[in-house]
Amino acid sequence: MLIAKNLTKEYGNFTALNQLNINVEQGNIYCLLGANGAGKSTTINLFLGFIPATKGTISINGLEVQENLIKTKEYIAYIPENLMLYPHLSGLENLEYLATLAQKKYTKNQLIDFLKEAGLQNDAHQKRVAQYSKGMRQKVGIALALAKDAKALLLDEPTSGLDPQASNEFSNLLLKLKQKNVAILMATHDLFRAKQIATHIGIMKEGVLVKSFKNEEVTLQELENIYLEIIN
């Protein structure tokens, strides 16, 4: 579903991403680990089509991203590190607006169902987002992914700054999406969450995917050791 082949991104003399190869299939969760500046967010932005690749190819559901900027957006949902919605609109209105932009038409009740499925408590639906916590906003992001019926989900440090309970809730939501056959690519620092939910894990350093393996091949301790070894 999400495929990068020999993907390279250069900014002048600086190589932000070097020869990246990944393939996230449907029903898989691929966690990209790495320190700041490792190239995780660059990878997400390349999949989103916000920046063009210098070399290599990148595709979503078989479509080259840069050649199909609008079409590829139909298949994906995106949740950034700090999902900021429109503070003067309610969670429901935000969802309705974003879903409409994604060409999805739903009744109010259907939208409420998505919010409920994403775990947003009922009394929050009509409240203005200005009063939402980060966790609540992330849930609206998940509701949007559900409303879009996204085949792939791109997440950029989604659990950073969340309390353990909210983080755990969020992980469970991702597992639900995994069960719905959604391909998930998540950039994160959180080794524990990665181990908890990933099917595949990749560790990046200075734009290079240094190591990539299946989750079941390592324990949390081993993951931590490998990570620290690569980072240092």
Partner: peptide, 9 residues
């Protein structure tokens, strides 16, 4: 929010 908007196509 701009990235969010653009990611809707």
């Amino acid at each position: 929010t701009l990235k969010l908007l653009l990611s809707q196509g």
